[in-house]
């Protein structure tokens, strides 16, 4: 006697492409609930932060002259927009950040390649790189200002803050490239340049991405510090000028714009990373 046919099941225990199992659906909706909770809590935190700040300053629990408060910052921002200078200041700073970032990345990368290609030079220079890297670059701001003047000194400080990270981290990455891959390429008789372009550089693409992420932040810090010293324009200038004239609303508005720029540059790198994702 043939076995009785199995009863049709409208709730298979396992997901099978077309229909999702009940357990899986429950799990998914629990996940969705969790993520709604997380987002709601995040929004609540931000709202509370601004509310407490506003209320505390308005009731003089804190001195608004020192802390300012959200509505005053917004008013200060509008005033700066109306005066018509803000966009110019933002552009000056953005250009400085982008140029310093690109310059320090390219030069740092080129130096790392040079030192990797010439191990003898690497050995000679290694202790000096360690020493120069150990100098707090911010301490050099006045010196660069005297040597290079108000504009170039900003680039110089931003590049010198970030270039060593690029150089040191990339070189370390190059030197740690999988020796088996290098041996394999050598069995094909590749030249040093081919080793670089076909093995070492592509293998270190992930290193480069993480270096870029760090470098963006450092370039920004370098540019603002440079502007504190010398600039006649830029967000760093707005911040020092605002603080000297005790306009905390404008200072905080400028810092907020900086934070927004920083977030944008970070996401630009993440987008770049995604574009390269097919390699990883």
């Amino acid at each position: 006697m043939p076995p009785p046919p199995l009863p049709p099941s409208d709730a298979p225990p396992l997901a099978d492409g077309a229909g999702l199992s009940r357990a899986y659906r429950l799990w998914l909706s629990a996940q969705r609930r969790d993520s709604v909770t997380v987002h709601a809590a995040q929004v609540l935190l931000v709202v509370m932060f601004f509310a407490v700040w506003e209320v505390a300053a308005r009731n003089l629990w804190v001195n608004p002259l020192f802390t300012s408060y959200p509505s005053a910052v917004w008013a200060g921002f509008q005033a700066m927009v109306i005066e018509g200078e803000l966009l110019h200041h933002v552009l000056v700073t953005v250009v400085e950040i982008v140029v310093s970032f690109v310059l320090s990345t390219l030069v740092g990368l080129a130096l790392a390649v040079l030192l990797w290609l010439t191990p003898m030079l690497n050995r000679i220079l290694a202790p000096f790189i360690v020493v120069v890297n150990a100098i707090p670059k911010i301490a050099l701001v006045p010196i660069f200002y005297i040597w290079l003047g108000p504009v170039l000194s900003i680039y110089m400080i931003a590049v010198s803050v970030s270039i060593f990270i690029v150089l040191i981290v990339m070189l370390a990455g190059f030197e740690q490239t999988d020796p088996n891959k290098i041996k394999l390429a050598r069995t094909f008789g590749c030249t040093q340049w081919q080793l670089l372009s076909k093995v070492v550089l592509p293998a270190n693409l992930p290193t480069l991405i993480s270096v870029l992420k760090g470098n963006v932040g450092l370039s920004l810090v370098g540019v603002i510090v440079g502007e504190f010293q010398s600039a006649k324009a830029g967000l760093g200038y707005l911040i020092t000028y605002g603080s000297q004239t005790f306009q905390m609303d404008r200072v905080i508005a400028s810092v907020t714009i900086l934070a927004i720029i920083s977030v944008f540059t970070y996401f630009a790198i993440v987008a770049f990373e995604k574009a390269l994702a097919r390699y990883a």
Partner: peptide
């Protein structure tokens, strides 16, 4: 030369891995 580790390049497709030697030469 076939080594103990396959040492395939993870950033290259199978075909491009096979072509590595030809490229180098």
């Amino acid at each position: 030369f076939m080594l103990q580790h396959d040492s395939l390049f993870e950033w290259r497709s199978v075909l491009d891995n096979v072509l590595l030697g030809a490229e180098i030469h």
